[in-house]
Nucleic acid binder design. Structure first.
Lengths: 198, 198
DNA sequence: AACGACACGTGATTC
DNA sequence: TGAATCACGTGTCGT
């Protein structure tokens, strides 16, 4: 800034006697200014390096300005969050509470999502199968996870009847009741899944 | 920049007659400079806005400088990528090929991961259960998914014996063979999971 | 010319 | 005090 006292046409290749007198204070100031701008450049480089690795991680992010890139990064993070949440929802660990959830995926769709969580027992799969068969429902997809004597089963079911959802819910609820409501008297027959030790 | 011809002590509150003469060219230049700096500020604001929303998404990112924040963002994205990859590995859809995979989670650990992929049939679970019971192995965790008459079952098994892993692999392989190698003659008994229509 | 995006150097602030 | 971070205005390049 002090150099602004001299005209801007003052190029570095001009004769030295045209340059301003140099004091010790000027030297210190110049040195400080230089290290300052160098440090600032290092900072910019660090930021831009991270920006560039982000560009490699995000698809189609070449040819995007910084703001757009960061915008897509936030979208990407939010999408991944949502995915993870839905995965842990649809294929979750069995909980402590018995429950049956049935709902139409879309209105007019014959796809139905059904879920049951209850104590494990060896006949359960067969019972569910025969129940759904009597309802003329087809199991398109099944995902069953068991832990500690409890079991959670998620189904994607295809059914022609429009009232199938409520029938399925009734049938599964009946299975759940016949499982849990033994006045504490459970079947003595061997479970397929054993309780986890410790 | 042209203003640099005047001393920097030229404050705004000084008498106007000390100010440089104003030409139409100067006016245009000043206006351009102003809109330029305003546009640049808008750009900075867009970038910083995204940075700020990223800060809300990343935990513990308050009090982090921009470079550190972006660094943690890349880590976060990579971690989520890895998580998603491992989830789709551990709980995968059944494949076309029969297979049995068994391996110790760690040396000296009694935790064993076992996986079987084959055609679905109603007695399969019971067979696996009795096979593992005869090996004194305990099913700690089970995850079974079925699609299109095929089934994939992933287990986490706890077994005391050090040779349990190979025994488990033999037992599961035997089940797989008794399932597929019927010279095309499959059990006529009703499957629990039906093949998906169309 | 005019606008948008970038890098640069600098003043201000904080520790 | 120096070191580190930020916002700002400006120079520059490409469209």
């Amino acid at each position: 800034m002090e150099n602004c006292y001299w005209p801007i046409l003052n190029h570095a290749d001009e004769p030295p006697w045209l340059l301003p007198p140099t004091s010790a204070a000027d030297d210190r100031a110049a040195s400080a200014s230089r290290s300052h701008s160098e440090a600032e450049k290092r900072r910019r480089d660090r930021i831009n390096a991270q920006l560039s690795t982000l560009r490699k991680l995000i698809p189609k992010s070449e040819k995007m300005d910084k703001a757009a890139l960061l915008g897509h990064v936030v979208d990407h993070v939010k999408e991944q969050r949502q995915r993870a949440k839905e995965v842990s929802k649809s294929s979750s660990m069995p909980s402590e509470n018995d429950e049956v959830v049935v709902d139409q995926i879309q209105d007019g769709s014959e796809q139905i999502k059904a879920s049951i969580c209850c104590d494990d027992r060896p006949e359960l799969f067969a019972e569910i199968g025969s129940a759904l068969k009597s309802l003329e429902a087809t199991i398109v997809e099944a995902d069953i996870t068991s832990l500690g004597g409890r079991i959670r089963a998620n189904f994607v079911i295809s059914a022609a009847s429009s009232s199938a959802a409520s029938h399925i819910k009734m049938a599964l609820t009946r299975l759940l009741i016949s499982s849990g409501s033994g006045y504490g008297v459970r079947s003595k027959r061997q479970r397929f899944f054993y309780p986890t030790p410790r």
